Amino acid sequence: MTDAFSSIDLAKELTLALEMADAGDAIAYAYFEKQNFTLSRKADHSEVTQADRETETALVDFITRLRPTHAIYGEEHGHSGNADSPWKWVIDPIDGTSNFVRGVPVWATLIALVHDIEGPVLGVVSAPALHQRWWAARGLGAFANGREIKVSDVATIAEAQISVTFNAGWEKIGGTANLIALQQRAYRARGYGDFWQHMLVAQGSVDIAIDAIGLAPYDNAAVQAIVEIAGGRHSDRLGIRDYTQNSAISSNGRLHDEVITSLKI
């Protein structure tokens, strides 16, 4: 641990994050089960529902009440809290809203605690419709439903299982052909998408996950923390460790540099 952690107890912060996830699940899952929400479009044409907004409001209120000295950044309500704090909670109330609104159970609430120098150091990914929750904090390990997890030790692309999310962002930079070529070199390729592919990397079920281009910090922060604490690597498409970038690749670490090289345009 560095001096950055001298004023904080990550075990207590993790307990708080898990309590927040319980609160978020109670709101979002109730809407998902009933499918009785209003749907609208944001300026970027992405979907947003009452469930997104109400879940984030509950989490922000939770943090504001119990961690008033911390900063907050959420997908729906933006920045709040103490802007001068080195500690920031980064929240995506529902990652996978497109799935959520169609009744597909692959969606989750993402909660991360980020330090302004160290980056994401704690993450919770709670997917109640999948009956799955992943969490991790630096120095405390990474877990899935209470079971400690770690990335795989697969050492070659030819042996690797890979998840790829194609989108217009990859096409725009001319990257689609390289994605296809990498898939063809792998043992098995699928498209699990969103948070799920990265959590599968963290638990050793998948070896490489390549996300869409066009991500935001709240898409990346929690998954980065969990992947890294499970022993893997998480970076943008150029290999830069920065959760604020608009692309994300996670791997078991052994394969990361080769993946980055393979995707260079």
Rank of each mutant, 00 (worst) to 15 (best):
M1P: 07
L10Y: 04
T15L: 11
M20V: 11
D22K: 15
A23R: 14
A23F: 00
D25N: 15
Y31I: 06
F37V: 03
F37S: 11
L39F: 02
L39Y: 02
K42T: 12
S46M: 03
S46Q: 08
S46L: 05
T49A: 06
R53A: 04
R53L: 13
A58Y: 01
V60H: 02
R65E: 15
R65I: 03
H70E: 06
A71M: 03
I72G: 00
G74H: 07
H77P: 00
H79E: 15
N82A: 13
A83N: 06
P86W: 02
D92R: 04
I94L: 15
G96L: 11
T97V: 09
V104T: 13
V104W: 07
L122S: 03
G123A: 09
L130W: 04
H131F: 10
R133C: 10
W134A: 09
L140C: 08
A144L: 12
A144V: 15
N145H: 10
R147F: 09
K150A: 14
V151I: 12
A155E: 12
Q183Y: 00
R190F: 07
D194N: 13
V201F: 05
A202K: 13
S205E: 14
A209D: 10
D219E: 01
T244R: 14
N246W: 00
S247E: 06
S247R: 02
R254S: 11
V259N: 12
